[in-house]
């Protein structure tokens, strides 16, 4: 999982090095188009196209009979039943390509989320850093000290504010004074871990969380190496502001990504000779 995420992150960083030169709506549209085309290819090779063709013919035939014999109740009912059956068969034939696409789609969406869901903090815009620890760790495990690079200020400096109540965590306020992809270092005794922090470069991808053992967190936040199950750290998170746009901003990008990839796939299906 970790290796796959590293490869994907590197790949997407390269892709966005080019796409990031243009406006964000364009990169979202291009990626949606590419995903739509890949989906078409997967459907072309992973589905029983002949069977889908037959189902489509059935659908056409039954639609025709509905139109021609609309006054004959028996024929209408029969055609409707066949249409329902054809629909179910169509869904059945789409299961293999959907299964093939599901995991890659989620991984791609997670990568895109790092670029469309959140934005880097602006210079001098305050945010917070939270180290969440396992609930069973001793109190001494809360004594983390944060070292900030040049261009990042933390408050309090050094040891963070410790939460030792309904959860165990250590929190700092962070303010980026210089734009850049900074590396924060956290130390507790001999243990030392890092977390990236992006300031001021609007086009950059962010990593809101360096995840722990949780599989869901590892899928959703793929940019940084996760902590192992033996680590006392459950996650290290930076709160990044959501991107604000009704097209390529927080939450909306997922909707438009799905809509655009489906629309583009439907438009291009004759080109690829795919039956859907």
């Amino acid at each position: 999982m970790g290796v796959l995420n590293s490869i994907l992150t590197a790949l997407f960083d390269t892709v966005y090095a080019v796409l990031g030169l243009g406006p964000r709506w364009l990169s979202l549209t291009i990626l949606s188009g590419v995903v739509g085309v890949i989906a078409l290819i997967v459907v072309r090779f992973c589905s029983n196209q002949a069977a889908i063709g037959r189902v489509k013919d059935d659908i056409k035939a039954n639609m025709l009979s509905l139109k021609l014999f609309k006054d004959e109740l028996r024929v209408v009912l029969k055609a409707q039943a066949r249409l329902v059956w054809a629909g179910l068969r169509m869904q059945y034939y789409m299961v293999p390509p959907l299964l093939v696409m599901f995991i890659p789609f989620v991984l791609v969406a997670a990568q895109m989320g790092l670029r469309y869901q959140w934005r880097p903090v602006e210079t001098n815009e305050p945010t917070d850093l939270t180290v969440l620890l396992r609930p069973d760790v001793p109190d001494s495990a809360l004594n983390w000290v944060l070292e900030t690079p040049d261009g990042v200020e933390a408050s309090p400096s050094g040891r963070g504010v410790r939460i030792n109540a309904d959860r165990k965590a250590v929190v700092w306020n962070l303010t980026g004074r210089k734009p850049g992809r900074h590396v924060l270092t956290l130390q507790n005794g001999t243990e030392s871990v890092t977390k990236e922090f992006v300031v001021g470069r609007d086009q950059d991808r962010v990593s809101p969380m360096r995840p722990g053992p949780s599989l869901l967190d590892r899928i959703l936040y793929p940019a940084e190496r996760p902590f192992g199950s033996d680590s006392i750290i459950q996650s290290i998170a930076v709160t990044y502001p959501p991107r604000d746009s009704w097209f390529h901003g927080a939450d909306w990008w997922v909707f438009w990504f799905l809509v655009l990839s489906i629309v583009i796939a439907l438009l291009l299906k004759p080109v690829f000779g795919v039956k859907l």
Binding site: T127, D128, I163, V171
Partner: peptide, 15 residues
């Protein structure tokens, strides 16, 4: 022991 607090408000943590 530090004279500080973490306040969670509006979905953010403020130290």
């Amino acid at each position: 022991d530090q004279p500080a607090a973490c306040i969670e408000i509006g979905g953010r943590r403020v130290v």
